[in-house]
């Protein structure tokens, strides 16, 4: 089952819509709650990242009985130093975003933590693609 979402870059209040919709579907499909939780958190962090850093993007979700694949694609500024970006607490979020309680530098680390497979490709000036897989045990 494929689901596609556009994450608008200019509206913070809409971040989280994709993860909410995916969560709802997974509950109806009868996935175990810990799997739902991992997908929901990983995707939510991704959505927030796309709004803060990339001016929005695209979320593609493939749900099957064995695994959930999440592909988050944006055409934002790209990540210059991926290793640094993956460190807990490292953030380039602007102050106005931090004032809202975001930008703690845990977005990418959490996405990695809550997914079973995590791949990040990024090119400065071109954009970033994050691929995550969460297995249904």
């Amino acid at each position: 089952m494929t689901l596609n979402f556009v994450v608008p870059g200019d509206d913070f209040t809409r971040a989280g819509e994709a993860s909410g919709a995916v969560k709802q579907k997974m509950k109806q499909l009868g996935f175990p709650s810990d799997v739902i939780r991992k997908v929901s958190i990983a995707l939510y962090e991704g959505e927030i990242n796309m709004v803060i850093h990339a001016g929005g993007g695209q979320v593609d979700v493939e749900i099957s009985q064995d695994a959930i694949d999440l592909v988050l694609t944006d055409h934002g500024p790209g990540i210059a130093d991926i290793e640094q970006a993956m460190q807990d607490g490292f953030s380039t979020a602007p102050d106005h975003v931090r004032d809202l309680g975001f930008g703690a530098g845990m977005g990418l680390p959490n996405m990695k933590k809550y997914s079973d497979e995590f791949h990040l490709e990024s090119e400065v000036g071109v954009g970033t693609t994050v691929r995550m897989r969460i297995y249904n045990h």
Partner: peptide
Amino acid sequence: PVLQLDPDMQIAFEKMNEID
């Protein structure tokens, strides 16, 4: 789990596709 479409996930997927 009253909101679950079916106890069998295979059937739940089929039902979800039909609902969509």
